[in-house]
Amino acid sequence: MELKGAVVLVTGANRGIGAAFVELLKERGATKVYAAARDASSVEAAGVEPIALDVTDAAQVEAAARAAGDVQVLINNAGISTGTALMTGDEAAIRREMDTNFYGPLLMTRAFAPVLRANGGGAVLNVVSALSWFTAPGAGAYAASKAAAWMLTDSTRLELAAQGTHVVGVHMGLVDTDMAKGVPAPKISPADLAGAGLDAIESGAQEVLGDEWAKFVKSGLALDPADRYAQIAAALGAA
């Protein structure tokens, strides 16, 4: 589909990758952009429709679907990372990551699927992560939630195919946002990642490998776990 003339809703639109999506959608000629954030006043972009939305709140999600009944593209970008380990970390933090990174996109997609169908099918884009395919010490909760988001993407692609909804998954390593602040490693810019995601919506691609790290990690999925993690450790300089 073409984004020029489209109506799009972006979650987590007040900063980072979400803010980059908003700006690029405006550049590509989207007719209307709903910029969703927990605090609508934190959305600074001009020419958009801010909408208060906590993706973990089912009532707010349903209200957003009623208020934005003209949406043709849903971009599930909102996410968190608490740095919580699965064995020793706080259970509430683990559940918060799963609620935001998996159940949030699930609730949004379920609520907006009828809207997309009524408006011709449209598209859903999920911002996932290369950490959907591996994990590291301290990243257990985040990786588990993103692995679930990966399967959510595959499942909704199959389930929504009959109504003509195109579903895209975006995977990447580090992005130059607050979430990766202080990590001394190469990072892709939010604009480059968002641009690749929008390209996929327009081209019909189902998956975006947004940087070399995502490509590298996916290339090892056929390996046995021991070999796969040895390869990742070597690439991280930890071998």
Rank of each mutant, 00 (worst) to 15 (best):
residue 86 L to M: 12
residue 33 V to M: 05
residue 17 I to H: 09
residue 22 V to Y: 04
residue 35 A to V: 08
residue 55 V to W: 06
residue 28 R to F: 10
residue 39 D to K: 03
residue 29 G to R: 05
residue 58 A to F: 10
residue 31 T to N: 14
residue 21 F to A: 01
residue 44 E to V: 13
residue 72 Q to A: 03
residue 77 N to C: 00
residue 66 R to T: 15
residue 77 N to W: 06
residue 15 R to Q: 11
residue 41 S to Q: 09
residue 69 G to F: 08
residue 74 L to H: 08
residue 64 A to T: 09
residue 49 E to S: 12
residue 41 S to I: 04
residue 40 A to H: 03
residue 24 L to I: 05
residue 35 A to Y: 01
residue 76 N to F: 03
residue 72 Q to W: 08
residue 35 A to Q: 00
residue 68 A to L: 15
residue 17 I to F: 10
residue 42 S to E: 14
residue 93 A to C: 10
residue 13 A to H: 06
residue 59 A to V: 12
residue 79 G to D: 06
residue 60 Q to P: 11
residue 40 A to I: 01
residue 67 A to W: 11
residue 30 A to Q: 05
residue 73 V to C: 13
residue 52 A to P: 09
residue 91 E to F: 15
residue 54 D to P: 05
residue 87 M to V: 14
residue 61 V to S: 03
residue 19 A to E: 10
residue 19 A to C: 09
residue 32 K to C: 11
residue 62 E to W: 09
residue 19 A to G: 07
residue 70 D to W: 00
residue 43 V to F: 02
residue 24 L to S: 04
residue 73 V to W: 11
residue 18 G to I: 03
residue 53 L to Q: 01
residue 82 T to R: 13
residue 66 R to I: 13
residue 76 N to G: 06
residue 76 N to T: 01
residue 75 I to T: 14
residue 92 A to G: 14
residue 80 I to S: 01
residue 16 G to I: 05
residue 73 V to G: 13
residue 46 A to C: 06
residue 84 T to R: 07
residue 46 A to G: 12
residue 33 V to H: 07
residue 43 V to D: 03
residue 51 I to W: 01
residue 25 L to C: 00
residue 34 Y to S: 00
residue 51 I to P: 03
residue 47 G to K: 01
residue 71 V to T: 02
residue 22 V to K: 05
residue 72 Q to I: 11
residue 52 A to W: 02
residue 16 G to L: 00
residue 69 G to R: 07
residue 48 V to D: 12
residue 88 T to N: 03
residue 30 A to L: 07
residue 69 G to P: 05
residue 67 A to T: 14
residue 92 A to S: 14
residue 13 A to P: 00
residue 48 V to Y: 06
residue 82 T to I: 14
residue 39 D to G: 02
residue 58 A to N: 13
residue 22 V to P: 08
residue 92 A to M: 13
residue 76 N to L: 08
residue 42 S to Q: 11
residue 63 A to W: 02
residue 18 G to D: 09
residue 47 G to T: 01
residue 32 K to V: 13
residue 39 D to I: 06
residue 88 T to A: 12
residue 54 D to N: 14
residue 14 N to H: 04
residue 53 L to S: 00
residue 89 G to P: 11
residue 84 T to K: 07
residue 42 S to D: 12
residue 20 A to C: 05
residue 60 Q to F: 12
residue 90 D to A: 08
residue 27 E to Q: 10
residue 31 T to G: 14
residue 21 F to H: 12
residue 72 Q to H: 04
residue 65 A to Q: 06
residue 50 P to S: 04
residue 59 A to D: 14
residue 22 V to I: 04
residue 60 Q to G: 12
residue 18 G to N: 05
residue 43 V to E: 06
residue 21 F to Q: 05
residue 23 E to H: 15
residue 47 G to M: 00
residue 23 E to C: 13
residue 70 D to M: 04
residue 62 E to N: 05
